[in-house]
Design a protein around this nucleic acid. Sequence first.
DNA 1: CGGACGTTTGACTAATCTCAATCCTAGTGG
DNA 2: CCACTAGGATTGAGATTAGTCAAACGTCCG
Lengths: 246, 246
Amino acid sequence: MSEGAAQHSTAQASGGYDACRRCRASLLCQFATHPVPGITVIKRQRRLRRGEILYSQGDAFEALYSVCSGTVRTSVPTAQGRRQTLGFCIPGELVGIADLSARRHTTDAVALEPTEVAAFAFRSVSDAMDALPLLRRIVLQLLAEQLAHDEELILPLLGKKTALERLSAYLLSLSRRYEARGFSATYFPLAMSRSDISDYLGLAKETVCRLLARLTDDGLITLDARRLRIRDHERLAQLVYGTSPV
Amino acid sequence: MSEGAAQHSTAQASGGYDACRRCRASLLCQFATHPVPGITVIKRQRRLRRGEILYSQGDAFEALYSVCSGTVRTSVPTAQGRRQTLGFCIPGELVGIADLSARRHTTDAVALEPTEVAAFAFRSVSDAMDALPLLRRIVLQLLAEQLAHDEELILPLLGKKTALERLSAYLLSLSRRYEARGFSATYFPLAMSRSDISDYLGLAKETVCRLLARLTDDGLITLDARRLRIRDHERLAQLVYGTSPV
DNA sequence: CGGACGTTTGACTAATCTCAATCCTAGTGG
DNA sequence: CCACTAGGATTGAGATTAGTCAAACGTCCG
């Protein structure tokens, strides 16, 4: 079974930065590694253990983070002391750029598994942007992309969609994102717990559980040890985009 | 009854650009009106009738649009020929900046009532950005703001929230946006139909109808001729953020 | 090996959707 | 100026879905 080109460096923060090539921050990285006269981009590597906090709501916004390996969850605390998950960042994605315009982080970010991130000091990035049109365009592009991604996400999740449709949409969305970062689109880790997923999708965790079981029974997916395999992409897509059943 | 400072130029595209002061595109506007040597920002006014299309999915991305008066709905067509509403733009807001990184529009945009927009030719804006750091920052800011807004929107809408909570969240969100643009936070037009709202929130239109009736009965809002008055902001907020009942 | 935590499954309840009929309102034409 | 019509808004009743509560099962860590 061909698992696609890149490996997932999930279980261990092994130091292999396979995602770097497709990373959205690769240009930043480049400037950090190969300084240009007069321009300094400060990069710092950081390792997080499972459950470790990257930043909390209210913290000063000092750096842009790019996920090298692992998974980061962003969320906001709700009044009732519960938590609303906003999203998950997989390798190659940036964490919390939405806070770019604020002085402080508006969300909590925590690692769901052993995770490595690259931190780019924001002040240096900001200065560099003024000097480098190319860099500027890239950051602009990143922002717009993120925005488009968010809206694409709103689409299947807010739509009249039933729980099954939502969950399917979520799985397909993950698939696309992994693929876009150079990983396999049909076999990837599901680092987040059922609760995380249900919280994110606005469902009960039992419902997520039951529906995953149903998708498995129907032969659309396989699931073991938190790794998901998509067996019938087409039918899954039908569930979401509707060209289909009955 | 103090209706807040500004008037809503809703019914008629009367030519009064009350929203200009707080408009997110005001800087663009400024450069268009008072040209700076070497920099040209091209602005064009455009009037839309109810139901008129601003742009369609697949159209070339040629301009940034700012809503002067009226309301614009953005949506994507779904496979079944139905439509998924992505959002509504009220006076002072920009339409479709998420497409900034694409060459073509990814959404459909249509006026829900008589509407006026200011169109800024994108190429000229793009050039101007390279020359003007200030303008650049503003656009960056706008993008980040929009992103933050989207995520703020995901919060109440995706959360485990019941239909009532979603609807309340939506009303409060509208309230905040109108206020941010200098209009009354407690009395504003609800230009979109029940179907638009239900489509947006992922509910049945009958449900939206019933819940609006319930909110009215309970004295939280008043609704007549598509104008909404928020009578008990606190209880509405309690419904959404939960500091409250039982 | 023990325990905490996450997952799974079942039974029951409550919320929301669907279908369908009726009511309203705005816009049209006489 | 008024009757007429189409589309939106409402309301009711029944069907379904998803949530809640509760218990049993697994598994990863320490």
